[in-house]
Design a protein around this nucleic acid. Structure first.
Lengths: 135, 135, 135, 135
DNA sequence: GTGGTCTAGACCACT
DNA sequence: GTGGTCTAGACCACC
């Protein structure tokens, strides 16, 4: 995995890195169990303050996306939704509505939006099957 | 239209209000030509500083979503996309990827996501027709 | 770069400063990547409230002329036109007509106006090449 | 002459009307000596407060573009530059620089700008000859 | 009445 | 240190 920081954006560095790790996991490019570079190594590689990397790892651990095994390193966690089904559904509705609001203001038609989502969704590693609903 | 501010979130007040207005316009609940509450009235209603409301209105005006008529008030604008097709397509890809990343981490399947998008898209007022691409 | 505010004009302070920065960028006197003075420094220098400077920077960022890097400062952005060709052409026609209207009322001849434009245009950093129209 | 007010713009009504009269004069569509509609008539026609029309006429009179002949009406004045040659040249330079700044930020090339100015200048009624420089 | 601009001063997040 | 957000309160222009 290579991560890239664009310092010309107003998105904070820690956010850029978090988003890239989250997206890599979502696309299946980072699979559960894989070890990430150490804070020190990655901070040198990206020319970023080690504190910033450490913050990224700890926030992703809080989100259940990474696990730190002391002395061994930081690893991609098994997928494990902690939210209730109701909370997950509500959260999904929120992010869909926010996304659709933006899409409308970009003057796309609903057909164009659905087509684009259908196409891009193939680049992501979703759960198999339909039933993720029982918890 | 009623707007609601949640002061406990870390989302800035002006952002919450902007998002709510943008969504209401995208859903067709606020139609072009409708007058919004005056800065002073809304600031009293939401118990928010008038400057904060004024900021929301002026940023939405810069985005082409509202118009200000001096001395008269603030109104919902006619939709008028000014971005190039290339910029619009890139923006759409970005928001879709960000949305799908979140959806994967919520442990939904791709079928569930597509179904939810298809369902919720009906609540929004998209452009008619499919081809909005010639400019 | 030195900026100057004339408090006797009816042009708002933030507009004066915005215009000066826009012109400096257009002339190539402020090049992409250059760091602008911090909000606090410039506000002391110009004897203007920091909020006013912050407003200038944030509006120019929305226009794609500046970038903010949190914690680091404000920088001149790479040029990146996002408007559609149609919108750009219409905008150009509008500003030309407004300019020509003023020029006529100053009692210049068309030859004088064209000569003056041709001469002054050399002080600006335009795009190379002629065709900037495909998007 | 028909004037049109667009209430959806943030440009004040009095400014819209002033600009339209100035442009009509500059284009030669309103010639010196022509009588303009009375304040009352025009205010009914445009559905605008009479005070607003009166303000437009009085400001244009101050600029030397209109003359009021009491009891007779308001007339288009003879062109009469009151400024010194130096002041006129400086003012021309200012409006050219402001215009060119905008044109650069619209990502046009200098060739495109010159071509567009040359084309649109034909729609305006400039002074004949080149020598408007002796005063 | 309407919105727009500016100041002063506080608090927070990012690096 | 950097910029971002919010409040409070003043003054001005437009209608």
């Amino acid at each position: 995995m290579e991560f890239q920081i664009d310092p010309t954006t107003r998105v904070p560095i820690y956010r850029q890195l978090m988003d890239q790790i989250r997206e890599a996991v979502a696309r299946g490019r980072l699979k559960a169990g894989v070890r990430l570079p150490s804070v020190r190594v990655l901070s040198r590689e990206l020319v970023v303050n080690p504190n910033t990397i450490a913050r990224v790892y700890s926030e992703l651990e809080r989100d259940g996306i990474l696990n730190t095994r002391p002395g061994l390193g930081v690893f991609v966690a098994e997928a494990q939704p902690e939210l209730s089904a109701a909370a997950r559904r509500q959260r999904l509705a929120e992010i869909i509505d926010a996304f659709l609001t933006d899409a409308v203001h970009l003057s796309f038609s609903s057909e164009e939006v659905l087509a684009a989502v259908s196409k891009r969704i193939r680049g992501f590693q979703f759960l198999e099957g339909a039933a993720s609903d029982q918890n």
